[in-house]
Nucleic acid binder design. Structure first.
Length: 214
DNA sequence: TTCTCGTTTCCTGTTT
DNA sequence: AAAACAGGAAACGAGA
């Protein structure tokens, strides 16, 4: 990894980036899309490349918001395919560099994320990080898996971005949610508008199951 | 290429 | 009245 130019890091596997490179890369995108950087927390931008590469689309959006998050995610995917060697996504068993540079509480549950996340998984991943999801959704009853949409149209837009469909609405998203009742991925919660409950065929949201120390 | 799955889109009717 | 909820039906795109 010999480097000379300021931006040499852009030609290497993003896994190798230091936290400075990551920060540089983020600010580059901030400039490029004229994003209002004052809405960002420097804390969340401080991570090394390996940590960055661990993040999936939803986590990226949870931290950086729908606009910047999407740009970062797409750009990172391009970097990965171009310079990231043979891996489509990061090695799940990577030892994890927990340097003081990394976000100390950066311990996402290791959920196997198949290509093309499903809607319920997308929703679940937003809920797993309530402190970072910008008030999009919240748990009504964490134990029971009951949750509520706070910004239904915003979530729908995010879902649409993920599927490259700018015309997604809550109306249409909710139809897909209702199909989950029969498959018992969701259970009905009636009388409660915008409230749903995870069913027995869902996974990855229970605190015990995920081992988040609760 | 065809088939399935998981939605997406549209719609009509009901409920809150 | 507006926004959600209910599902049927058909179209769709990705992947096997």
């Amino acid at each position: 990894m010999c480097g000379t130019a300021l931006s040499w890091y852009r030609q290497v596997n993003p896994q190798c980036w230091t936290s400075e490179h990551v920060l540089e890369w983020i600010s580059d995108h901030v400039d490029r899309i004229k994003f209002d950087a004052s809405t960002l927390t420097l804390d969340y931008c401080t991570m090394d490349g390996a940590t960055l590469c661990q993040m999936n689309h939803d986590q990226m959006i949870s931290i950086f918001g729908p606009q910047l998050g999407l740009h970062l995610h797409q750009s990172l995917q391009e970097h990965k395919t171009k310079y990231g060697g043979m891996f489509g996504f990061p090695n799940p068993s990577s030892p994890e560099s927990r340097s003081s540079d990394s976000d100390p509480e950066f311990s996402y549950p290791q959920i196997s994320t198949p290509r093309g996340t499903h809607l319920w998984e997308f929703i679940r991943d937003i809920l797993i990080h309530p402190e970072r999801n910008q008030g999009l959704m919240k748990w009504e009853d964490r134990r029971e898996g009951i949750f509520k949409f706070l910004k239904s149209e915003a979530v729908a837009q995010m879902w649409g971005q993920k599927k490259k469909n700018s015309s997604m609405t809550y109306e249409k998203l909710s139809r897909a949610m209702r199909y989950y009742y029969k498959r018992e991925i969701l259970e009905r919660v009636d009388g409660r508008r915008l409230v749903y409950k995870f069913g027995k065929n869902s996974s990855g949201w229970k605190t015990e199951e995920v081992g988040m120390g609760m």
